[in-house]
Design a protein around this nucleic acid. Sequence first.
DNA 1: TAGGCGCATGTAATCGATTCCACGAGGAGG
DNA 2: CCTCCTCGTGGAATCGATTACATGCGCCTA
Lengths: 337, 337
Amino acid sequence: MASIKDVAAEAGVSVATVSRVLNDHPSVSPAARTRVLAAVEALGYRPNAVARSLRTDQTHTLGLVISDVLNPYFTELARSVEEEARALGYSVIIGNADERPELQDHHVRTLLDRRIDGLLVSPTDGGSPLMLDAARGGTPMVFVDRWIPGVDVPVVRADGRAAVRDLVAHLHGLGHRRLAIIAGPAATTTGSERVEAFREALREYGLPLPDTYIGQGDFQAASGRRVTEEFLGLPEPPEAVFAADNLMALGALDAIRARGMRVPDDIALAAFDDIPWFVHTDPPITAIAQPTPELGRAAVRALVDRIEGRPPQSVTFAARLVVRRSCGEPAATNVTR
Amino acid sequence: MASIKDVAAEAGVSVATVSRVLNDHPSVSPAARTRVLAAVEALGYRPNAVARSLRTDQTHTLGLVISDVLNPYFTELARSVEEEARALGYSVIIGNADERPELQDHHVRTLLDRRIDGLLVSPTDGGSPLMLDAARGGTPMVFVDRWIPGVDVPVVRADGRAAVRDLVAHLHGLGHRRLAIIAGPAATTTGSERVEAFREALREYGLPLPDTYIGQGDFQAASGRRVTEEFLGLPEPPEAVFAADNLMALGALDAIRARGMRVPDDIALAAFDDIPWFVHTDPPITAIAQPTPELGRAAVRALVDRIEGRPPQSVTFAARLVVRRSCGEPAATNVTR
DNA sequence: TAGGCGCATGTAATCGATTCCACGAGGAGG
DNA sequence: CCTCCTCGTGGAATCGATTACATGCGCCTA
């Protein structure tokens, strides 16, 4: 592979001049510039990003550590992150933690070893020493979707509180009174917040939330299935189930079908995180939609601001309820798609 | 960030000794080793992968360029690729081409600039000059799922021919005679091969495949919807539709429902590529399943073999038919899950 | 006891870029 | 005509690692 020296030799100039041409430094004569560009062309030269990074101490690369690539919510997030980063001149390296803290640490470590310019994280847990050290040690960092309390890192996320209240109103309006939730791990913010929002909304309607109606899941389909089976086995099973993410909702759907029951006739179902597939299931599933692409874009912008010395901003978007048919017939005024 | 020099100073040895300890070179005294390790610990030193790569000309990184991250088939592939690579001591950088050749080229270019050790590609097209040059220029490369004919690059893929024949037999056995296909782009091998296999299987059963029953899709849901609408608008619509990937199948499902028709009563539907969601749709969709994780693992092994100087092997797996309910009642002997 | 061998270690070159500094040529101004 | 400034250019240091080569020491053997 041709190096800058080869180009310099071919063009009959010094490596310094070649470098200047490549970084369009102003003080290069037109003649030299032409010769260098011709040499670059002739040799098919491409600058070695590794060498460049070593010298400049910049990789123009962002790390993105997500909790689960198999979850469509996160792939959509990853896609928008990459898109925005590319627009701003950065590449993205994705690390998939599979909801496992030690795998998350592995990725954080290798990303730091590669000297990425900044880190975008959706933590699977309350924060390992490694990640906390990195944050405190000055690695530009932004949390997206989930975050870790008590760390001075900007957070880009969606607030589902209002949408959860809308959902409870919707369920209440349809006559449902016994509402249950399949929660995510309490160590994650999205795990605990969604339960809190749900509990609060129920209180507004004077509805109870007994412990038996709070199932402990782990954001994976299997846990949704298990928890739903437990719900259905109760002496007084819930009339509606709210899953804190889309994978657990599908697990729930599965468990309900396995019992020969129908949604929404026998039991209502709703999910946090809307995904394209929810339109295609039978029945289409009512869900709380985050503006996922906007989240990704805002997170990248915040991180790049931080990297390039501008003050980064935490951003909170609003999630919104998308009513479909899985809780019963929608009122005419509600959004359907 | 501490460098090897700082460690050397702290431990009172030269950088060479530090390097030897880190790469466990045999000839280092136990005393020196201990002092170095203590210094590493004290400073929280981590070797700079950028500098190391520059010197050794190895990045221990593989590039993976896939056609569409939003397609669950590819995310599953990406996951298994990363897993196997990690087991072999490599990291993976994923580039998403979004089925756009120019984006594919962008990713190939930046990956090469980063001097990745090898490239795993599922090409979106017949091969750009850039990719062909890279392949011929000696960049270790392996094609996975899709490939480009006429290039000397190992291919790891699944052969769907037998499974497609099984599918046609299944459809024929259920009494369907007018079978149609939603094809992928002809520039991709999976696009053309699946049509060919289908055509051949139909011929075995003496069934025709008129041009009106070959819809041209692009592996995205919208195209599946459009093509299906065209099918349904024909004077004599097909009795069964076979979508060449999962996203187009969902588009088809959508179009069928929009007409108020039911699967499989009014029309049968099957898809290439099985995904977890197909179990949850109503009805569950009959599909041709590739051993996706095995594909990813084999591709990584082939690529790493090539990188480390062992002869790489092309591998072809068999795809298999998974019968569910979207074509009609399954025969008792067929696999269901 | 001298020669030789091997081990532990250090010095310095090297990878491919960027960039500071010095230098020479040429033009402007006094 | 001399001085000074600007512009284009090249030499060389530098980033942080790896590694070939040199060196010195201790020990074994003849």
